[in-house]
């Protein structure tokens, strides 16, 4: 049976054939938040594990414990819940987790964030890196885009979600309005992916090409396709999209505009 590593835990992979339907990397006692999790690091690791386990109740309960202990709420999110989401993203990339699992991990993270959010000290929202994200026109499949959004949000990026079936001009207009310099475009269909080329063409036509980074992704898209249409980058999956956004952000920062790479 395959093993996965969840931070310092090593546990059974949740994809074991014939295994229980609701995989758990390690069973937590009902009051795990009050038992055996005395140090801050232990609690944060348990929070991460709750996210990987898709366990909303444990995530919320452990987050309450973090509040009770007066730990910094932002640190609890960053070092606990977000670490869990990063691990979930890696499992997705390794094809141990799929769409349902990743969605449920995000729900578990949200359950913890809801508890911790009121206790976060003021965050400088202006410092976040903004990304415009959407599904190209003609395509109404948005599950991949939604996964990218939740992974980017988890990593601290500010995502302006344009939804699905978005005309090429809208990507550019909204990016300009929002001051976002990264445009991420998704397509799940071979019949619509060519529309991504139009975004690049319009940017060139308006003399804006150098001001934006364009990244593409989705089921039928590839690096070769990204190269052919003149996109700056391609991401094969939602977890990779976070690293990609960080890289693009650093590249933009390198041109003197000072973009930040989320929490990365």
């Amino acid at each position: 049976m395959a093993k996965i590593e969840c931070l310092h835990y090593e546990a059974e992979a949740p994809v074991s054939p014939g295994g229980q339907d609701y995989p758990r990397a390690l069973d937590l006692p009902p009051d795990a938040g009050r038992m055996g999790l005395e140090g801050k690091e232990s609690l944060f690791q348990a929070m991460a594990k709750a996210v990987v386990d898709m366990d909303e109740d444990s995530s919320a309960r452990l987050s309450e414990e973090a509040v009770r202990r007066r730990y910094d709420a932002f640190e609890a999110i960053d070092q606990g819940l977000t670490k869990g989401m990063e691990q979930a993203g890696r499992l997705f990339e390794e094809e141990e987790y799929f769409v349902p699992e990743l969605l449920l991990c995000a729900d578990a993270m949200d359950a913890g964030v809801e508890v911790l959010k009121p206790h976060i000290k003021k965050v400088d929202e202006e410092a976040k890196c903004r990304i415009v994200l959407g599904v190209i026109s003609g395509d109404t499949h948005d599950i991949g885009k939604n996964l990218v959004k939740l992974m980017l949000n988890s990593a601290g990026f500010e995502v302006i979600d344009l939804g699905r079936d978005v005309d090429p001009e809208i990507f550019i207009d909204r990016a300009q309005e929002a001051g976002a310099r990264i445009i991420m475009i998704s397509s799940l269909m071979t019949t619509t992916m060519e529309g991504m080329l139009d975004v690049v063409k319009i940017l060139k036509k308006r003399g804006l090409r150098d001001q934006f980074k364009v990244a593409v992704g989705g089921g039928p898209v590839s690096q070769a396709f990204a190269d052919r249409i003149g996109a700056d980058a391609y991401s094969p999956n939602a977890n990779h999209a976070v690293r990609l956004a960080a890289r693009l952000s650093v590249e933009l920062a390198g041109d003197g505009t000072g973009e930040l790479a989320g929490n990365l």
């Binding site: 609701y22 898709m54 349902p100 969605l103 449920l104 729900d107 499949h141 599950i143």
Partner: peptide, 11 residues
Amino acid sequence: ELEVFSKGIYK
């Protein structure tokens, strides 16, 4: 919604 359906496989 595909997301609702996907989560429903577990929940």
